[in-house]
Amino acid sequence: MPYEPPTHTVERSIRARTGARIIAGVDEVGRGAWAGPVTVCAAITGLRRPPEGLTDSKLISPRRRDELAAELERWVTAHALGHASPQEIDDLGMTAALRLAACRALDGLPVRPEAVILDGKHDYLGAPWTVRTVIKGDRSCVAVAAASVIAKVRRDALMAELPQEFADFAFADNAGYPSPVHKAVLEERGPTPYHRLSWAYLDALPRWRHLKRTRVPVSAEAAALESGGQLGFDF
């Protein structure tokens, strides 16, 4: 089924309404995974014509997605990635972890965006950023679509590079998301240091249920200051 290519309509609307010229598209990947970080990409594209075939990363074949991510990283004006580790997700909850990862991505850009286009209907970013949320922004907005593809490819690569001792979890194939292989190995071996231990999947694993964490909320600022517990992720 063909999809309409993304446009710069949202960017142009923000420019006309606010005068902002530096606008970042932001998208995340890894929200529904059992293992691994949540990853956010912030991309600044300007109003140039994007590479052919750009759309929501989930609609692109893995091979083409890898090729397109490499093209996009050369094409965008700037981009940066931010991650929140499994431990930070457990400590903060997903919404605050998303904000932490998004702030890390935005702070990693060489210039500070004057406005941010966030995929979805919920603003998990908030002040001091000027945010416009766009449902299905990864299909309709060039900057968000670019962020979607880069985030997906880079997080998949991160998961594929986890230590060989965890190869039977097939992270290179499932990227930490639920799958029959992932669940079967979890039942046999239990969670790794890369798993989120506050998540409900542990309720269905009687042998490992005792490992489930009850989240004690901490502030995002405190979590950002803690450099430990990232367990091999290079972020």
Results as ranks from 00 to 15, higher is better:
I60G: 10
P62A: 04
P62I: 07
R65M: 05
E73G: 02
A80M: 08
L59H: 00
G82H: 12
E73K: 12
E88A: 15
S57T: 10
L81K: 02
A70T: 10
I60T: 13
E71F: 07
D90S: 14
G53Q: 10
E73M: 15
R48F: 03
E52C: 03
D66K: 09
A84W: 14
E52S: 03
L59R: 13
A78L: 04
S61A: 15
E52L: 06
S61L: 06
P86D: 09
A78P: 11
L59Q: 13
G93N: 15
L72P: 09
P51R: 03
K58A: 07
I60P: 08
R64Q: 13
G82Y: 15
P50V: 06
K58N: 08
A69P: 14
E67W: 00
I60Q: 07
T55W: 06
L68F: 02
D56E: 12
I89N: 02
D91Y: 07
R74Y: 04
L68P: 11
L72I: 01
A69F: 08
R64Y: 12
E73Q: 14
R49F: 09
L72W: 08
A84G: 06
E88N: 11
A70G: 05
L81V: 11
D66P: 04
I89Y: 02
P62T: 00
I60N: 05
G82K: 13
R63G: 09
E73D: 11
D66M: 06
E73Y: 00
E88L: 09
G53R: 02
R74I: 03
H83A: 09
K58Q: 12
L68R: 04
R48V: 01
E88T: 05
R48Q: 15
L72N: 07
W75V: 05
H83F: 14
S61M: 00
E88C: 01
K58W: 06
H79N: 03
A78E: 12
P51L: 04
G53W: 13
L59K: 12
E67Q: 12
P86S: 01
D56M: 11
I60L: 10
L54V: 00
S85W: 14
S57H: 07
R48K: 14
P62F: 10
E67G: 00
L81G: 04
L54R: 01
P51V: 03
T77P: 00
R49L: 08
E71N: 03
L81T: 11
E88D: 13
R48S: 15
Q87W: 11
W75K: 09
G82N: 14
E88W: 01
L54E: 08
T55P: 06
L72Y: 08
A69L: 09
G82Q: 12
I60F: 00
L72C: 06
G53I: 01
P62H: 03
E88V: 00
D56H: 07
R49W: 11
E73A: 05
H83W: 12
D90N: 10
L54G: 02
A70N: 02
R65Q: 09
A78F: 11
D90E: 15
W75F: 13
Q87A: 11
A70M: 09
P62L: 04
A78K: 06
I60M: 09
E71I: 06
D91Q: 15
